[in-house]
């Protein structure tokens, strides 16, 4: 590789209108990378119901990231905030004649998806949606900034933020520093770990497992500077894909199509009003003030399809060909 190597950025777009909260990405990732002992509580990819406290619990209020460009102190989540993984002794009940039920050994009072489908608002004006969250492979990774061992690097060829466990000194500084709580600590090995973008798959020309296995077809991946990639079009051209909590100052590279389809608020007489059920202010708190423009554009483009007129934007989101969501990548191994 020469010094003329371009700095490129791999980006992800997650369409919250298509995400069905099925946790397919969560399990695809977990099954592939985080099943070893010590990693049970870690979900590099998780899907949480919002409004809600999320995973780890209240992750958004722990600090980390940057404040006016300066690293902002953060707090490492506690094991309880991640959720102590439930374990069940089925063999005792099923094969050894123990009478009790297979209930979790740990007291069950929190888990990564504890608030599933709860959301906010009073019936009938309740609302919720699903928010998949993964490492943002940020432009200014707070984790890397905090790592004094130099174990976390943003690599130039695709902008993935990678953590070298051989260099990790177990300081946990990165865990506290990531405002999205997407760096983790493996107490068994005394090493930090995080999403590596499924780089072995990328090297084989394949989309990461979370994207490839998304049965809701809600995830896009590709180079942000690839004019042909759907991520480029949605982020750069249409401006309808927005980062989550950009105020943390890290420059996330996971972008979200805000939820713009949903029933309107219902009036006291039971008829539907005009206002969207999910308050714009709430969406702005997640995706910034630009979300209002994005919602307007998305709604207008959908109305075009309703009238039978073409819409490039809706076609991009529908993505009739599965490969159209994946930039230059393919979905699955060919052999």
């Amino acid at each position: 590789m020469t010094s003329s190597t371009r700095h490129r950025q791999m980006a992800f777009v997650i369409d919250l209108n298509k995400c069905i909260g099925c946790q397919g990405c969560t399990i695809a990732c977990k099954r592939l990378w985080t099943t070893a002992p010590g990693l049970e509580a870690a979900y590099w990819m998780n899907v949480e119901t919002v409004p809600g406290r999320g995973y780890p619990r209240d992750w958004a209020g722990r600090g980390g990231g940057f404040d006016k460009g300066r690293p902002k102190p953060g707090r490492e989540p506690t094991p309880e905030e991640y959720g102590i993984p439930f374990e069940f002794d089925y063999s005792a009940r099923l094969f050894s004649g123990k009478r009790d039920r297979g209930r979790p050994r740990a007291a069950a009072d929190w888990a990564p998806n504890w608030e599933e489908d709860q959301g906010a608002g009073a019936y009938p004006n309740t609302y919720f949606f699903y928010l998949p969250r993964m490492c943002n492979h940020c432009d200014r990774p707070a984790c890397a900034e905090a790592c004094e061992a130099g174990a976390i690097r943003k690599r130039p060829e695709d902008g993935l933020v990678l953590l070298d466990p051989d260099r990790c000194d177990g300081s946990r500084a990165c865990v506290a520093a990531c405002p999205y709580a997407k760096t983790f600590f493996d107490a068994a090995k005394a090493k930090a770990h995080k999403c590596h973008g499924c780089f072995p798959r990328l090297e084989a020309g394949l989309a990461p497992a979370c994207v490839a296995q998304c049965t809701g077809r809600a995830m896009h991946v590709g180079f942000l500077d690839d004019g042909a990639a759907s991520v480029h079009k949605l982020v750069r051209q249409w401006g309808v894909a927005l980062p989550l909590m950009d105020g943390f100052g890290t420059g996330p590279n996971v972008f979200y199509i805000p939820p713009f389809i949903g029933p309107a608020v219902e009036g006291p007489d039971g008829t539907a009003g005009a206002a969207a059920r999910i308050p714009d202010n709430y969406l702005a708190s997640l995706f910034g003030p630009d979300v209002r423009t994005a919602l307007r554009v998305l709604r207008a483009e959908r109305r075009k399809r309703g009238r039978g007129e073409p819409s490039e934007l809706m076609d991009l989101l529908i993505g009739r060909d599965a490969r159209a969501l994946l930039g230059h990548l393919q979905p699955h191994p060919s052999r």
Partner: peptide, 15 residues
């Protein structure tokens, strides 16, 4: 679950 995308995609398509 594996069929739901046809629903969300129909909605995006103006249905």
């Amino acid at each position: 679950i594996p069929d739901s995308h046809y629903l969300t995609e129909a909605a995006l398509n103006g249905t």
